[in-house]
């Protein structure tokens, strides 16, 4: 069996794990209190901005 077919065989598993992770992530984020959710949003925003800030 070549390597690409191994990967293809595991694809549904990986997709399910990702979807599960996403669901758990949403659930956790949903249950966070307002302050923590705000901090999380800010952390993501800051992370996204970093490469641009270096260029200014």
């Amino acid at each position: 069996m070549d390597r690409s077919s191994v990967t293809r065989g595991r694809a549904p598993l990986i997709a399910a794990a990702l979807a599960g992770g996403l669901l758990v992530g949403f659930a956790v984020a949903f249950r966070l209190e307002e302050e923590s959710r705000r901090r999380l949003r800010k952390a993501f925003f800051e992370l996204r901005e970093l490469p641009f800030r270096v260029m200014v």
Binding site: E46, L47, E49, L50, R53, V54, M55, V56
Partner: peptide, 14 residues
Amino acid sequence: TNMGPFRPNYRSRL
């Protein structure tokens, strides 16, 4: 995230 390399540069890159 707003200090060191992430603060505006002394020599403008723009």
